[in-house]
């Protein structure tokens, strides 16, 4: 009897879910944290930051969605770094299962977390007054884009987890990477409020482009473009390109790094 790749991946994914069942606090960063961000930004900063047409709450949701999904890089990085530090990886490697199934299992479990994040964020958004103003198919496209972007982030997170030497390092490295790329963007403030050089950076930053695309597709207010470069001028097309490219890149480098790390 031998398993299919899907069955093996599900066995590994179930293991990750079991970890969450044992330590539910692991879910904080994909549940309570985004909820907290929406409320804090909507009610604390909401009065101070002015955006055109539609109000800050409608502006905010696209930004928080992408930022939270980007921060979700830490989860997979943490769990794979922990596995690699403990001996459990050797056990799996000495079993008759495919190497790729192990990473796919992590991916599947983390994807469920990201789905939960999206549902919670949109739900909280609806409660504080966020609405879509776009055709149904555009909203569906926005949701699909979010899922592809979430996939890219998870693969990059898995790569990062294999790269660092210990789980303790994940937080440090993660914050240093994720904070700048999410804050040098249009996530919370309009691009025009940034210094000139950062406006250029933010206009090609995948995070800005993804946020602009999601806002566009939801029919929410979009920050005025200040630097005319292709990605920010064509946010939806550029967001798809970025996301698909990052999924492929993340998947390839994670697999390669895993192979290198587990071969001696």
């Amino acid at each position: 009897m031998s398993n299919t790749l899907l069955t093996e991946s599900r066995i590994f994914a179930r293991r990750n879910l079991e970890h969450i069942r044992q330590v539910p606090e692991k879910l904080t960063n994909v549940t309570i944290q985004p909820l907290m961000f929406v409320l804090l930004f909507a009610y604390v900063f909401g009065g101070a930051i002015k955006v055109g047409g539609g109000g800050y709450k409608e502006y905010l949701i696209g930004g928080i969605l992408i930022q939270t999904l980007a921060f979700a890089m830490m989860g997979p990085a943490m769990s794979i770094a922990t596995d690699l530090q403990e001996g459990v990886i050797d056990r799996f490697r000495s079993l008759p299962s495919r190497r790729s199934a192990y990473l796919l299992g992590h991916y599947m479990a983390e994807m469920l977390g990201s789905l939960l994040t999206i549902v919670i964020l949109l739900g909280t958004g609806l409660i504080v007054g966020w609405r879509t103003h776009a055709p149904f198919l555009h909203v569906v496209e926005a949701l699909l884009l979010l899922l592809v972007f979430a996939s890219a982030i998870i693969w990059i997170g898995l790569w990062m987890g294999i790269l660092v030497r210990s789980p303790d390092a994940v937080m440090g490295v993660g914050f240093v990477v994720v904070f700048p790329i999410t804050f040098i963007s249009n996530a919370f403030v309009p691009l025009e409020s940034l210094p000139n050089i950062l406006q250029w950076v933010a206009s090609v930053n995948p995070v800005s482009v993804l946020i602009a695309a999601v806002r566009t597709l939801f029919g929410n207010p979009v920050a005025p473009v200040t630097k005319h470069v292709w990605p920010i001028d064509h946010p939806v097309g550029a967001a798809w390109l970025y996301s698909v490219a990052l999924v492929v890149l993340g998947w390839v480098i994670a697999q390669r790094r895993y192979r290198a790390r587990t071969t001696d």
């Binding site: 398993n3 293991r15 970890h19 403990e86 001996g87 079993l95 008759p96």
Partner: peptide, 23 residues
Amino acid sequence: QSTVDGLMSGRLNLQTIGRLHGM
């Protein structure tokens, strides 16, 4: 080095390994 999963029960550890063996 111990290669069992600390965050699962003994039974679930063995069950997971058995499943990966194709049972």
